[in-house]
Design a protein around this nucleic acid. Structure first.
Lengths: 227, 227
DNA sequence: GTCTATAATACGATAGAC
DNA sequence: GTCTATCGTATTATAGAC
C-alpha cells in the first residue's frame, strides 16, 4: 500500500522504517496488553491496532511472548527512574513530594505502561520475578535506608519506609490503572489539565501530612488549595 | 464419581448439590479470572480448578460471560458494604480508621475478589458501567458529604473527600492486587498474621496523619510502634 | 444431573508469492 | 521487507449417551 520502501530489501537511511514499524507495533501492543494482559491479548488485535498484517508482528518480534517481553522491558526502564530524587542530602519533603509528582506524571502520561505492569503483577508476575526480587528489592532497600535516616533525625514521622512505598505506589498508580473508576466518580469523560493538577496537589498534601511534614509549605506551591 | 445424587434428577433435600457445585465453580472461576481476567481465562482452566468436566460449567452458568457476571455480582455485594462505618454521627478518626481496617481485611481475606475487580477496571470495566456510574458514584457522593461536614467543623484536614477515597482504595487494594510485589520486597513467601497487622497499623497511622487526625491515639492501639 | 465426544470457530505461527 | 493464504492447535459451546 505504501510506496516509500516497497519491493526491495534496503530501507531508507538504514533501518529507519524498521524502527518506525517496531515502535508502531510496540505502541499498539502496549495498548492491547494494557487492557487484557498477555493471556487475553491476541496478535490479531495488536496487528489491527498497529495497522499492519499479523505476519509482520511475527517477523519483527517472533512470538507473542517475545513481543510482550519487549513491551515490558521498555516499561521497566521508565519505572526504575522515578526514585532517583530520594537522596540522603535531599530535603525530605521536597524529595518525597517530588517522587509523588513524578509518579503522578507517569500515571497521567504513560497510563498504558502502568496498566501493563498492573496486569503483569495481577497474574503473578511470571515475567518479572528477576525485576521484583533483585532490582526493585534492592532499590527499595537503598531508598528505605535513606528514609529511615530522616526518621532517625526526627525530620519525619516514624513509619516503615517499605510500607510508605507500597502506599505511594498504590495511591499514584490508581490514577492510571483505575482511571475508569475515577472518571465515573468525578463524572467526567477524561481528566482535564486542571483536574490532574488538583489530584496531584491532593495526593502530595496528603502524603506530606501522612509523613508528618505538613507544616512548611510543600515546596512547589500546589495550586489546589483554594477550592 | 460421587454417589449421593447420581442417575436421577431430584437432589438430596432440594438443590443441595446444585448449590455446592455452583459455589465450587464460582470459587474456581474467581481464582482463574483473578489471574488473567475475562479475556485470558479459559473454561478448561476453570473446570480443572473446580475438579469438574467443562460441560458442567456450561450446564450451570451458560456462557463464559455469564459465569463472569455471576462472579462479579458476588464481589460487588462485598464491595459496597465497607463504607457503612462512615456516618455523620461517627467520630471521624474512628470511622476512617475503621474503614481502612475493613478494606485491609478484604485485601487479606478476599484477595481474589479484589483482583477480579482490578482486572475488570483495567480492561475498561465493560461489565461495571452501571455499578461505577450509579451505585458507586452515589455512595461516594453521600460519604463525601459526611466527610466535608467533618472538615467544615474543623475536625480533620481540608481535602477533597473523593480523592481521599481514591487514595484509600489504592493504598489498601495494593496489598491484594500487587501482593506479589509486596512479598518480593519484604522477602517472604506470604504475609504472616503479624505482618498483616503491622501493614494495617502502618496504613491506618499514615491515613490518620494524612487526614490531620494524628494526635489522639488511633483507637485500637496499633501494635507496630516498637520496631 | 453428569460427562465424553465433537462441532464450529479463533488463535498463534509460518510458508511462500510478491 | 511485505502480506495473503493456510496449517495445526486451542477454545467455546453443545449434542447425546449414560
Amino acid at each position: 500500500m505504501n510506496n516509500s520502501a516497497a519491493s526491495g530489501a534496503a530501507p531508507a537511511p538504514r533501518g529507519r522504517i524498521r524502527r518506525e514499524n517496531e515502535t508502531r507495533i510496540l505502541e499498539a501492543a502496549e495498548r492491547v496488553f494494557a487492557e487484557t494482559g498477555l493471556a487475553g491479548a491476541t496478535m490479531a488485535q495488536i496487528a489491527q491496532a498497529a495497522g499492519l498484517p499479523k505476519a509482520n508482528l511475527h517477523y519483527y518480534f517472533g512470538t507473542k511472548e517475545q513481543l510482550y517481553q519487549a513491551v515490558l522491558t521498555g516499561i521497566l526502564e521508565l519505572w526504575l527512574d522515578a526514585t532517583d530524587m530520594i537522596r540522603p542530602e535531599s530535603d525530605p519533603a521536597e524529595a518525597i513530594s517530588g517522587y509523588v509528582r513524578a509518579k503522578m506524571r507517569h500515571s497521567r502520561h504513560r497510563p498504558l505502561a502502568s496498566k501493563v505492569f498492573a496486569n503483569e503483577l495481577l497474574s503473578g508476575a511470571p515475567f518479572l520475578t528477576d525485576y521484583l526480587e533483585i532490582d526493585l528489592r534492592k532499590r527499595v532497600e537503598a531508598k528505605s535506608r535513606i528514609i529511615a535516616g530522616w526518621i532517625a533525625e526526627g525530620r519525619m514521622a516514624a513509619l516503615d519506609p517499605r510500607h510508605l512505598f507500597f502506599m505511594l505506589w498504590g495511591m499514584t498508580q490508581t490514577y492510571a490503572d483505575f482511571a475508569v473508576q475515577i472518571r465515573a466518580v468525578m463524572e467526567v469523560e477524561s481528566l482535564s489539565d486542571a483536574a490532574w493538577e488538583e489530584a496531584t496537589a491532593e495526593v502530595v498534601a496528603f502524603v506530606l501530612r501522612g509523613c508528618g511534614m505538613s507544616t512548611s509549605a510543600a515546596s512547589a506551591a500546589p495550586a489546589g488549595a483554594a477550592r
